[in-house]
């Protein structure tokens, strides 16, 4: 069973959808049932960060070995991560509209995530603008390391240093503070794993597709 993790992804995703709608949640004004977005909006970002992290690992491998296969892996992991980032932004925007009252607010967390998305889009543009394979792999890899450090700064560090509307940042408590009977964790942790596995699955398909394309050219 080489693909056991794909089966795990399917089972966990189904569990997330059923549990996400049915398991009791803490009662909170303003949030109401929208607190269930925790199982869908937050894992988008976790998956994005996981995919970008794996991409950096492959970029470093590429720099140390000069093998092009790592460059292809890094590229497709970033591509998939961007999809998850876009989904995270859209879902967050909808959630913000019905809790904070606006589609977008100039909050450190929101602007930081927007800047991060632009940084990664620049990775795609940069990599696509170079023709020489070896050079492209190297420059893209160096830029990717730079991009990941900026991601940590913009999403992880800066939002925690000033006031933020976003839960879990800038003195604003995360949802674990409301989740007194740990009911939400029962769904949230499997949900995070489920979405990460799904992202990994999609990325692996894209990597295999890219490899096939590369082989057919050679």
């Amino acid at each position: 069973m080489r693909n056991w993790w794909k089966v795990a992804a399917i089972i966990l995703l189904i569990y997330t959808v059923i549990g996400g709608f049915l398991v009791a949640v803490p009662k909170q004004v303003i949030l109401y049932e929208s607190i269930r977005n925790l199982y869908f909006h937050v894992p988008m970002w976790f998956s994005m960060i996981f995919l970008f992290l794996m991409s950096v690992v492959n970029s470093i491998k590429n720099l140390s070995s000069n093998e092009l296969k790592y460059d292809i892996r890094a590229k497709e992991l970033v591509n998939t991560g961007i999809i998850f980032g876009i989904l995270g932004t859209i879902t967050g925007s909808i959630w913000a509209k019905f809790t904070w009252g606006a589609w977008w607010v100039n909050d450190v967390k929101l602007n930081g995530s927007a800047i991060t998305m632009l940084i990664y889009l620049a990775y795609v543009v940069l990599r696509g603008s170079l023709d020489d394979e070896q050079k492209r792999a190297r420059i893209a890899a160096v830029y990717n390391i730079f991009a990941f450090v900026l991601l940590l700064v913009f999403i992880g560090i800066l939002p925690r240093m000033t006031d933020s509307l976003h839960p879990g940042n800038g003195g604003n408590p995360g949802f674990n503070n409301y989740d007194l009977d740990n009911n939400m964790k029962l769904v949230f942790y499997p949900a995070v794993l489920a979405w990460i596995l799904l992202g990994w699955w999609i990325a692996s398909l894209k990597i295999r597709m890219s490899n096939l394309k590369q082989n057919s050219i050679e």
Binding site: L13, I14, V17, I18, F21, L22
Partner: peptide
């Protein structure tokens, strides 16, 4: 709703 989302997911 759960049924609909499950169908889409599956």
């Amino acid at each position: 709703v759960i049924a609909v989302v499950l169908i889409i997911l599956i």
